[in-house]
Write a protein that binds this DNA or RNA. Sequence first.
DNA 1: GTTGTGACATCGC
DNA 2: CGCGATGCCACAA
Length: 128
Amino acid sequence: MPQFTSPPKVLDYNIQVWEIVRQIPAGKVTSYGRIAAMISAPIAEKAKAYRAFGARWVGGAMAKCPDDVPWWRVINSQGKISARPSAPRQRELLETEGVVFDEKEKIDLKVFLWEEGKESDSSQPTLL
DNA sequence: GTTGTGACATCGC
DNA sequence: CGCGATGCCACAA
């Protein structure tokens, strides 16, 4: 267990993030905003604030990146890898999982985006 | 107590 | 579709 600062609330949030990330099947990816959205329902009042920083909280949680969490399956909404120093390393891991990148190093979220409850289904997304 | 930055997302051109 | 600019919360110095 890594050493976290005292804020238990944020830590609790991070734990939820890790829990979700662990549920991501191999060969699938998800975005920070997606995780943030599925964790705590965006409150109407703070919806903007949450939308603005909820994703960053997830990033903060990933910053701890415990060994039990496949942090490499977490990317941004652009379907690209974040500016992490080990970004190239992440791409290698994703390719090993079966994820493919386009010439712009972007991932087809229409194909590899992990959707809740659609992990092992034969539903083939409409490839255009 | 204040200032700066951060594994992002969204809007506009 | 790509790039630039903005917003917000929490933490570290």
